[in-house]
Amino acid sequence: MKKAKTLEELKNATWKELPIGTVNPDPANSLKNFTGTWRSGKKPIFKKDTCIHCLFCWVYCPDMAIIVKDGKVLGINYDYCKGCGICEVECPTKPKSIEMVKEEVTLS
């Protein structure tokens, strides 16, 4: 019996096709699970002009949704951001370099 390996195969696997011990052969595949769809009502907007790249937003974001490259914040990854607003609260600049704004909710 061929064992399921990819995410799609795992999703559709019968019990016989499941890997033994339900070992998941596809590490970190939740990167394809876009939790950004959870956001309800508000989303963070990044303002690069005032950002001092302290990276507090990066370390305190529960969803690893702050995009950082070479020590600099590039923006927000809306695929995963759930809109908690911690990044705005923890941002130390005045005015804030991340601001939560109202977002239209589209039900899919």
């Binding site: 970190a28 595949n29 939740s30 990167l31 394809k32 699970n33 876009f34 939790t35 959870w38 302290c54 990276l55 507090f56 990066w58 370390v59 529960p62 969803d63 690893m64 949704a65 950082v68 070479d70 020590g71 990854n77 695929d79 995963y80 759930k82 809109g83 908690c84 607003g85 911690i86």
Partner: peptide, 24 residues
């Protein structure tokens, strides 16, 4: 933090923990 941010996440996005959860 700059150093930490350059390391790969061993726990990645797309998890189902509540918004604003302290665990991740």
């Amino acid at each position: 933090l700059r150093e930490l941010a350059s390391m790969e996440d061993r726990l990645v996005s797309g998890h189902g923990l509540c918004l604003g959860c302290g665990i991740p």
